[in-house]
Amino acid sequence: MSGQTFGRTGRERHQAERGPGPGLGGGAGRTLAELSRQAVLLLLGLLGLFPLYFTLVNSLKNPTQYAANLLNVPLELHPENFAVAWGQINGPMLHSVIITGASVILTLVLATLSAYAFALMDFPGRHVLFALIFALLLIPDFLTLIPLYLQIKALPLPSNDLDLILPTVAAGQAFCILVLRTAFEALPRDVLEAARIDGASALQTLTRIVVPMSAPVLVSVAIIRLIPVWNDYLLPSLVLDEAHRTLPVALVAFQGGGASSSAAPNYGALMASYLLSAVPLLLLFSFLMRYYIQGLSSGAVKG
């Protein structure tokens, strides 16, 4: 395959130069500009991290400390919150990993196939079908909750997990297809054309060119889709039986203190459980981000 025909992109240039970027000035001015850029980014980034700080300091407080001051670092630490939280979530966590992982991967596979067809293939009814899929974004999910639940119950599936995974995959399709179609349409046509001339089938083009070239977008979509699936609780609380309970469902039980009472939660332990349940996400991110970087710099684009 010959992909050398298209121009160098920003990412290659960075890789090639490594040195000074397209600066705003020269010499010392550049360094100054670089420093000020970093200062601004650091400031904004740290501000964005404030909720994490908030969660961390409050995860170490008992209820009266929490109620007294939300923002300070407690003098007397209560790390036992983590033990309490872990006791609540260690079983459901594994389950959440399975359900979220399966849902997101399946979402991406299906959405990639569809987005490829919408972006790069020509077939009668393409625009109508795409408009129909797009229209799903416009219907708030709490309004379709009841008919959706009836549909889930009407389809006997071999596993209770699938009862949740399949509707979750369906719910993510519209957004993912929309984003991926935009990304695939922006791919350089000459590379695809070259592949076609080389005799690559549509599936080969998809797996060998489109997917590797779109790795950053695919990873972004995966990360963004991961979060709501990981945090979803209303549908899982209705669909999953006790043995298949996911993290947020366990957390809701935990927050309530009782079966569904209006009791105030033990916020300290709740914050601790938020942090614990963020750990798998962080691990996954670091893994995905490495792939993201590799996708950027591996030169896969050159075919």
């Binding site: 609780y233 209303l234 309970r245 569904s260």
Partner: peptide, 13 residues
Amino acid sequence: ATPVPDNDTMVRV
């Protein structure tokens, strides 16, 4: 002992 985040919604669904 399943937690109920929103009782009326649970009943309806």
